[in-house]
Structure formats: structure tokens, C-alpha cells
Amino acid sequence: MGWRVPQDATADDVPGHTRPLPQKRPPRSRTRRYLKRAAITLAALLAILAAAAATLLLATPSASDATKLAAQQARQHGIAYPGPPVPANFARPLVATEDHRFYSEPGIDPLAVGRVIEGKLTGSQDQGGATIEQQLAKLLYTPGQSGVTAELTQVALAIKLNYAYSKAEILRLYAEVAYYGHGYYGLEAASCGYFGHPASKLTVVQGAMLAGVVNAPSEDDPIAFPAQAHARLAHVIARMVAVGYLTKTQGTAVLNTPLGIVPRDDAGC
């Protein structure tokens, strides 16, 4: 007869059986500590950025006088103000090339701003990212200025412009104060000067050329530097295809369409 384990026996009473060691409570996760510290640091940085943004908005002027400033510049350049509404054949290539999130962003492009900040921190080349509102703020409020202070001012004013004016009004203001090369200021004067007709009659290729020129009007002047202007035009058309304003076939057809430039000393139509 074998050995029988009593019903009231414990683990220590069973031959060959040892009581398992009690499980130690695992130490606090190091990853959790790192995440907590990172969250606190991020919250502090966001608070600092929010305070800096609020200070910047308070320190910069109102954007309610943008139309007044545009009118002053028009008088200085001897052109009529206000100009006509911006035609789609100029608005679409401008938006596609300069600011393809124009209709959905709040005056600044957070993704582009992030790239610019990263570039400044790492010392890499500035990839741009100025929205149409920022470019308009530069033209109206900080012409000829550069540096961090000017850029921050443009950012703050871009946000204010976005809330003070509709997108159509912002495009119109931009079109009226931009320089298009060859001595032409304002979209209407540029259309009349290059093509001999008002902006309302711009063809797709003509509007694309003018939208491309504003980025570097002295370098991409289609009369003084036709090869560079054509290269810029090709880029604008490619952007219109990329954002869906044109199909690839349409883009090729537009790029091969004659510009019809008839330069005139008088920018009137």
C-alpha cells in the first residue's frame, strides 16, 4: 500500500515538493517614466509657444488697414485701385504653386512652418513654406525687411489677414500689390503690359506664366529671360497637374500653347 497524502496536508508536507517563491512586484517601468517626462516637457513647450504666439499677436498691428496700404502702393506705382476680381486662370496656378492648402489653412501652413523650424534647428536649407497670406503681409507690412523678426511679424499678420478678409479678397489684394517683372505692378497692368488685354481675358498659359513670375520677377521676366521664364512656367504647369487643376494631357497642351506676348511701354489696355 502506497503512501497517501493526508487531505489536510500542505505543500511542505508533500515529499519532493517545494513551496514556490513569492512573486516579486515588478519594478516601475522605465519607459513609463520617460514618457511622463516627455509629456511634461512637451506640455511646457506648448505653453511657452502659446504664450509667445499671444505676445506676438498683441505686439503686431491690426490687418484691418491692408486695403489702405494696398491703395497707397497702387498710387506709388501709378496703377488703378482696386483692380478687377482675380480670374480663375491666375488664381489656380498661383495657389497650386505658392500655397496649395490656401483654401483650408488659417493663414499659415503648420506643416510648412514645422519644416522651416526643423531646417533652422538642423542648419539644413530653408524649404520655404510662406503662405499667400504671409507673402501678402511681407508686401504690405515688411517690404524690404528680412530676418527672424520680420518673419515672425509676417506669421502673425498672416493669421490676422486670414480672419479679417475672405480668401477671394486676399487673392485680390495679393494680385494688386505683387510685382510681375518688366516694370509691371499689379495683375491688371501686367496682363495689359505683357499680352495687351485685361486680366479677365488671360488664357491658362498666360495666367500660369504670371503666377510663376511673382516668385522671382527679375529672374523670370519672360521678355528679358525667356528660357528661365519657360522653365518656371513648366514648374507651374506641373504643380497644376499635381494638385488636380489640370490633367497630364491638358498640362502638356497648355505648356505647348503660345504665350502671345506683345510687350508694351504703356501698361494700360
Results as ranks from 00 to 15, higher is better:
residue 6 P to N: 09
residue 7 Q to F: 09
residue 9 A to Y: 00
residue 10 T to P: 07
residue 14 V to I: 15
residue 14 V to H: 06
residue 20 P to G: 03
residue 21 L to C: 12
residue 22 P to W: 04
residue 22 P to I: 03
residue 24 K to M: 11
residue 25 R to P: 13
residue 26 P to G: 05
residue 28 R to Q: 13
residue 28 R to L: 12
residue 29 S to P: 10
residue 30 R to M: 11
residue 31 T to W: 11
residue 37 R to S: 14
residue 37 R to K: 15
residue 38 A to V: 02
residue 39 A to E: 07
residue 41 T to F: 05
residue 44 A to S: 14
residue 47 A to M: 13
residue 48 I to F: 13
residue 48 I to Y: 10
residue 49 L to G: 14
residue 52 A to W: 11
residue 53 A to C: 12
residue 53 A to V: 13
residue 57 L to W: 10
residue 60 T to R: 08
residue 61 P to F: 04
residue 61 P to E: 08
residue 62 S to W: 04
residue 63 A to N: 11
residue 63 A to C: 12
residue 64 S to M: 06
residue 64 S to Q: 12
residue 65 D to F: 04
residue 69 L to G: 07
residue 73 Q to Y: 12
residue 73 Q to H: 12
residue 75 R to Q: 15
residue 78 G to F: 01
residue 85 P to D: 02
residue 86 V to M: 01
residue 90 F to A: 00
residue 93 P to F: 00
residue 96 A to M: 01
residue 96 A to P: 02
residue 97 T to R: 05
residue 97 T to Q: 05
residue 107 G to E: 03
residue 107 G to D: 05
residue 109 D to A: 05
residue 119 G to P: 05
residue 119 G to I: 04
residue 124 S to V: 10
residue 125 Q to C: 01
residue 126 D to M: 08
residue 127 Q to W: 02
residue 127 Q to M: 08
residue 127 Q to T: 09
residue 128 G to W: 07
residue 129 G to A: 03
residue 130 A to D: 13
residue 132 I to R: 02
residue 133 E to V: 03
residue 133 E to W: 04
residue 137 A to P: 13
residue 137 A to G: 12
residue 137 A to V: 06
residue 138 K to R: 11
residue 139 L to F: 03
residue 140 L to T: 12
residue 143 P to D: 12
residue 143 P to K: 09
residue 145 Q to S: 12
residue 145 Q to R: 14
residue 148 V to H: 13
residue 153 T to A: 13
residue 157 L to Y: 03
residue 158 A to H: 01
residue 164 A to C: 11
residue 166 S to F: 04
residue 167 K to W: 06
residue 168 A to E: 14
residue 170 I to M: 08
residue 170 I to P: 10
residue 170 I to G: 08
residue 171 L to V: 06
residue 172 R to P: 06
residue 172 R to Y: 10
residue 173 L to M: 10
residue 175 A to S: 07
residue 178 A to W: 01
residue 178 A to V: 02
residue 179 Y to V: 02
residue 179 Y to T: 02
residue 179 Y to S: 04
residue 179 Y to W: 05
residue 180 Y to L: 05
residue 183 G to Q: 10
residue 187 L to I: 03
residue 188 E to H: 11
residue 193 G to A: 11
residue 197 H to N: 08
residue 197 H to P: 05
residue 199 A to Q: 06
residue 200 S to R: 14
residue 202 L to C: 02
residue 204 V to P: 06
residue 204 V to D: 06
residue 207 G to F: 01
residue 208 A to Y: 00
residue 213 V to Y: 04
residue 213 V to W: 04
residue 214 V to F: 00
residue 215 N to Q: 15
residue 216 A to V: 03
residue 216 A to P: 02
residue 219 E to S: 15
residue 225 F to C: 10
residue 227 A to F: 01
residue 229 A to W: 01
residue 229 A to M: 01
residue 231 A to T: 14
residue 232 R to W: 05
residue 233 L to G: 03
residue 234 A to G: 10
residue 235 H to A: 11
residue 235 H to K: 15
residue 236 V to M: 00
residue 237 I to P: 00
residue 239 R to C: 05
residue 239 R to D: 07
residue 240 M to Y: 00
residue 243 V to N: 05
residue 245 Y to D: 03
residue 246 L to V: 00
residue 247 T to D: 14
residue 249 T to W: 08
residue 250 Q to C: 02
residue 255 L to D: 07
residue 262 V to C: 10
residue 265 D to G: 13
residue 265 D to R: 15
residue 265 D to P: 13
residue 266 D to Y: 09
residue 268 G to V: 10
